[in-house]
Amino acid sequence: TGCFAATADRASLPRADAWFICVPTPLDGEGRPDLGPVRAALETCRAGLRPGALVCLVSTCQPGATNGLCRDVLERDGALIGQDVYLAVSPEREDPGRAESPRRVPRLLGAPDAASLARARGVWERLVDRVVPVATPEIAECAKLLENAYRLVNIALMDELHRGFAALGVPTRAVVAAAATKPFGFAPFWPGAGAGGHCIPVDPGYLQMELARAGQPSALVALAAAANAARPRRVVDAVAAEFDGRLAGRRILVMGVTYKPGVADLRVAAPVAILSGLAARGAVAMWHDPLPVEVEGFARVEDPARCPDGPPEAVILGTPQPSFDLAALPRLAPVAFDPFGLLPRDAGRVVVV
């Protein structure tokens, strides 16, 4: 309709009425939040602000970022928040691959002052069905971090219990499905190779940083983060155990390498960590995925039923992509490793990990 334009040239940006900051906020090499992209985006906004413009932080940041970094940059030239320029925060609530329109996802909204909140609410109510105002920016920032810390802890719990249920001979997914019939006090989480992506493994680190600054770091969140980070290594350990601890020269195929089914994104993807772990132990690590992604340093297999040099010695379900025939997957190799509890046990030798 001609109503959308994109540019990488900040000089060509109009003096807009509303600016949404939606840039990545990863962790740096030492596990600390990297707000460099947010700072750069704020500088772009500041250079193009018109009087009365709204700046809304959508990127996930630690509590205090809106009232701290954002305010500091926007007021540097003497402008006052709530008078000359308006500031708010509405943390992203993304679910990549979700078919439902983002318009239906309620938006949290916090602002440093009533005027900024009213201005931001007027904008967001045109874009989404429901806006949920909160009393301070810090409440909105912490709520976003709580959402993903909650998921991290429960995913780590599920991955750990998955091994325990397997040892008991009980199918994990059947247990979860049964528990999920309870209409209160339970939300289903499913086992996997480890939570990846740009949110769940990352956002709790922002929360931990601020909790530690306040002298109250969460031991439970720290344990869950460590367990999630170690999950791919435990999968590799299980493969090694099947071969008496010796993986050198073993040809292992990982089926699916994206962090989430149906989403072509490799950020913090557990299957990529599994490939690296296999290679570190001398295995010939190969991968197959129907999505348009590339994993540098590892051989891609176009047709898993016709691997170069013959069938693999083991196959690992890295990501259950929608197009996979899970019933046939165990027949690709003498042994299949299943972190998800999805593979049928009567199609070949399947090891639950």
Results as ranks from 00 to 15, higher is better:
T1A: 15
G2C: 07
G2N: 11
C3A: 14
T7P: 07
P14I: 06
R15Q: 13
D17L: 13
A18H: 15
P24D: 12
T25P: 08
G31K: 12
R32G: 05
A41F: 10
G52T: 05
V55E: 05
C56F: 00
S59C: 05
Q62W: 12
G64K: 03
T66L: 01
G68T: 10
R71W: 11
E75G: 10
A79L: 15
I81P: 00
G82D: 11
Q83K: 13
Q83C: 07
S90K: 06
R93F: 11
P96E: 04
P96N: 03
G97D: 11
V105A: 07
P106Q: 08
R107F: 04
R107E: 09
R107L: 13
R107C: 10
L108W: 10
P112E: 08
A114L: 08
A115E: 15
L117T: 00
A118H: 05
G122L: 10
V123G: 01
R126C: 15
V132P: 02
P133S: 02
A135T: 13
K144Q: 08
E147C: 09
N148F: 08
V153H: 09
V153G: 10
N154D: 13
I155N: 00
G169T: 12
T172Y: 00
R173P: 03
A179K: 05
A180T: 07
T181R: 14
T181E: 08
K182P: 10
P183C: 06
G185R: 11
A187W: 06
P191Q: 07
G194T: 00
G196C: 12
P204E: 06
L207K: 04
E210C: 10
E210R: 15
A214E: 14
G215K: 09
L220P: 05
V221Q: 03
R233V: 09
R233C: 03
V236P: 00
V239A: 02
A240Y: 04
E242M: 02
E242N: 02
R250W: 05
P261M: 11
G262H: 09
A264V: 05
A270L: 09
V272R: 06
I274S: 02
G282D: 02
A283R: 03
A283M: 06
W287A: 11
D289A: 13
L291S: 11
P292V: 07
V293K: 07
V295W: 02
F298G: 06
R300F: 14
G310E: 03
P311F: 04
Q321W: 12
Q321V: 11
D325W: 13
L329Y: 08
R331L: 02
A336L: 07
P339W: 07
F340D: 01
F340M: 04
G341D: 10
A347R: 15
